[in-house]
Design a protein around this nucleic acid. Structure first.
Lengths: 231, 231
DNA sequence: TCAATAGTGTCTGTAAGACAGTATTGT
DNA sequence: ACAATACTGTCTTACAGACACTATTGA
């Protein structure tokens, strides 16, 4: 171990992102197909090296904006954990700081210059796929975090467009937890939490049936008492 | 950003530890006084550089064993988060992976060769102290994690010696949450969770009053329904 | 017997889930 | 009218917290 002067064991530091969205009623993760070694042609989480004077969240934002046509700073990005097994990257000693992002449905993602493809992959397929590096473990940890976090925070609204119905919000929970919720109980509970959602005053016609009111995300962060992932 | 060949932005990677214990009825953190620049003479969390072929949890264990006369692998170590602001270390670009450890009461800690002192500092004083680097934020995050984690896991038993009374276990929760719990409700709840604690069959005399049974930690991990930090 | 601590019983309020019932629309 | 969807009322059960009560010891 070196601890003095300019000499220290040099590490490469990367960020890798678990980017989740709801599309066609299914929870999906953003995956990219690698165009270079190592793991060429293998699917992986989007990621990249951290620049010498770049903060870690800034690196995560940069990677995210390169793949998606994101307008805003309002996207929620949180750190999952850091992965640094000595042989996780065959090229060099690397630690990867993993981030989790929640996005509402967007256009198709665009692959970067060194990538063959980019896609929103349904979560079951993504988890089963052989991913590059230790990305399968990172994806698993990110999903676990997401499933836990929407229980006691209002983050589920981040999966929704700016205006949404309670049906859409409930669909988020149902997709993330892979479990059906009682529509009535859900509406009562969400509306009882101050600042979870706020009426827009508008309604949208359902395919058939009574039109649903639309809501904006409110400014509350904590949901107490929490919604529950298991019955 | 460099992403090909041997050339990449070099980072130093360290581990820093939030090591907590209960001593004299108070929650305390292990702090060390730095004997070299930067932040010479300032108190800090124990930490150190990660060696070139060392896994991150192994580095954390090594740092922990250097300070405390720990016998075992059974200590619980979990990652808190990673801190990598560009100027967090004035010497070089450094990212620090922070770990959280729960220990039962041990001997006084021993300072390392480049440290002036080491001590179990009561948590209130530790939080108020001006610590080196961004260690105050790391300590805060570690405490938040600890307070949340003992709600829904059996980790509080890690603060207890191998055999303990319910009074001792309750004292752990009271110290960590800084809140008194109803003794009766606590006993009923803990005993109702299968595998939380197991009777040793022995008792210990109280200073005055009925002797308390002693227990070992059981093999359960989750506490459901959770104990609650707030009333 | 008294004081102190350990542990149990019982009541009450809150909240979750099941599910029936009402409201509002398009066809 | 009917079907479909949105939402509300009501009942049951579970559990947390308050607190009174019993149990067991040393002095």
């Amino acid at each position: 171990m070196v601890s003095r002067g300019q000499s220290f064991p040099p590490f490469a530091v990367t960020v890798d992102l678990v980017v989740l969205t709801i599309r066609e009623g299914a929870l999906r993760a953003l995956l990219v197909r690698r165009g270079e070694e190592p793991f060429e042609k293998r699917w992986s989480l989007p990621g990249g090296f951290v620049a010498p004077s770049e903060d870690l969240p800034a690196a995560a934002q940069r990677v995210l904006q390169a793949k998606t046509a994101l307008d805003l700073q309002t996207v929620h990005l949180e750190q999952i954990a850091t992965y640094g097994a000595p042989k996780r990257d065959p090229r060099m000693r690397t630690v990867s700081v993993a981030y989790l992002a929640f996005l509402h449905d967007l256009d198709d993602p665009s692959p970067g210059p060194r990538e063959l493809d980019a896609a929103w992959v349904p979560i079951g397929a993504a988890e089963r796929r052989r991913l590059a590096f230790d990305h399968r473990a990172i994806l698993r940890d990110g999903l676990t975090r997401a499933r836990a976090k929407i229980e006691y925070t209002t983050l589920a609204t981040r999966f929704c467009p700016p205006a949404f119905t309670l049906r859409q919000l409930r669909a988020v929970y149902e997709a993330v937890w892979d479990r059906e919720l009682d529509a009535g109980n859900f509406a009562r509970k969400v509306l009882a939490i101050p600042g979870f959602v706020e009426e827009t005053g508008e309604s949208v016609a359902s395919p058939r049936g009574r039109p649903a009111k639309t809501y904006h995300a409110g400014d509350a962060w904590h949901v107490h008492p929490p919604l529950r992932a298991v019955a």
